[in-house]
Write a protein that binds this DNA or RNA. Sequence first.
DNA 1: TAGTGGTCTAGACCACGGG
DNA 2: CCGTGGTCTAGACCACTAT
Lengths: 235, 235
Amino acid sequence: MVSIYQRIFMDIEAKIISGDWRPGDRIPVEHELVAEYQCSRMTVSKALSALVERGMIVRRRKTGSFVASPQIDRTVMDIQDISTEAELAGHEHRFELLTRKIERLGETEAQQLSEAPDAEILRLQCLHIVDGRPNAIERRIIMLDAVPRAREESFASIPPGKWLLAEVPWSKAKHVIRAVSADTATARILQTERGKACLCLIRQTWQNGRTVTYVEITHPGDRFQFAGTFHPTAN
Amino acid sequence: MVSIYQRIFMDIEAKIISGDWRPGDRIPVEHELVAEYQCSRMTVSKALSALVERGMIVRRRKTGSFVASPQIDRTVMDIQDISTEAELAGHEHRFELLTRKIERLGETEAQQLSEAPDAEILRLQCLHIVDGRPNAIERRIIMLDAVPRAREESFASIPPGKWLLAEVPWSKAKHVIRAVSADTATARILQTERGKACLCLIRQTWQNGRTVTYVEITHPGDRFQFAGTFHPTAN
DNA sequence: TAGTGGTCTAGACCACGGG
DNA sequence: CCGTGGTCTAGACCACTAT
């Protein structure tokens, strides 16, 4: 049996995850939800509080409740530049598109992503430069059936991650963090040595059960790390 | 202004973090808290629900609410063996104590840990073996003023992490994840090559504002990874 | 069966902040 | 000012489960 506040929670979550309600959109005020669900205000409040806890909405007195800004990339945001850990501001960020190809998903990758082998994809490779030094290489696959508008976007001036966030702000994501040795190509791009330890963040995101994008972001291990208090949550 | 349910939440959290209430201990039933805080049952319930959300207590009908088992090591638990990702059971775990020394904290490390330079510590090094292969090397510092009983423990048969969990089950922790190249000693112990990419988890834990332990766990990068959905939480 | 938590109601008063 | 969320009350009924 699903309780009333759980139903309210799930209904609103679904609207946000599906993109029906986008960041900044106002959600119904409490008394409207009270009328819609025929329940008391406390019950509505419990559902909304849970949504705040998850970071999906923000509530403001007088003005109402709104869909929050996406937080799906927060993990990546927390990557810290070891050499300049102290100075949290004043970094110069730059971005270079290395390759952009429309292809079909190969057999191996299709299996890895649990998607159809012939699905049309956009394959991107780009380099992130911070303070003049290569910071990360990003290898990304965008599923064109899920995000058809990516076909018309050149990604010459906007990083794919940022573009996707604007296009598909909320999604479910799975992360994997690995240590890998730099292969020849990676080492060359990151201006480091072949075999050097790199920290690799892999993320696959879904919306409405369909894969939106798959990305591997590889950082030079001597220059970057994750920090914080991590809580793996149930998948 | 702190609300009633927040005060209840913080009071109980403090009892658990301080070790006053230990895992498995029963916490007062709702009507007792209602009497203690002179508030309604809903207010108590809200505080207890928040504690459940954080994983600090479990609530059972008829029997009451209890301090949950510690979860501070959950991040580490989620390390997955890449080669045997499929088989989630049937692993053979072994543990070897390599070194055990009582020393005083050096200048550099003291700064790193934000502790006094002459603090007495127990320095441990051990090797974790899973299915016959070196899985991780653990380099640990235990602050003897915070955990004096560690002085009498040989750690010959019980892993320090497990012992500490029994001794100091709840604490605040900070994690850092890095990729490092194996140095000669590490490579030898992990039976891999020098310079090989390794995944290093660093964790410092505190209880009542004092450092309890600092540990670096280094895994061979080709055999291990973190997986899951990570939510870095505000420090 | 009885004690416990799970959920809900129909109000209430207050704090905040935009107009 | 007044609409909004933040918190709280004093009950209520039900579900679960140890005994």
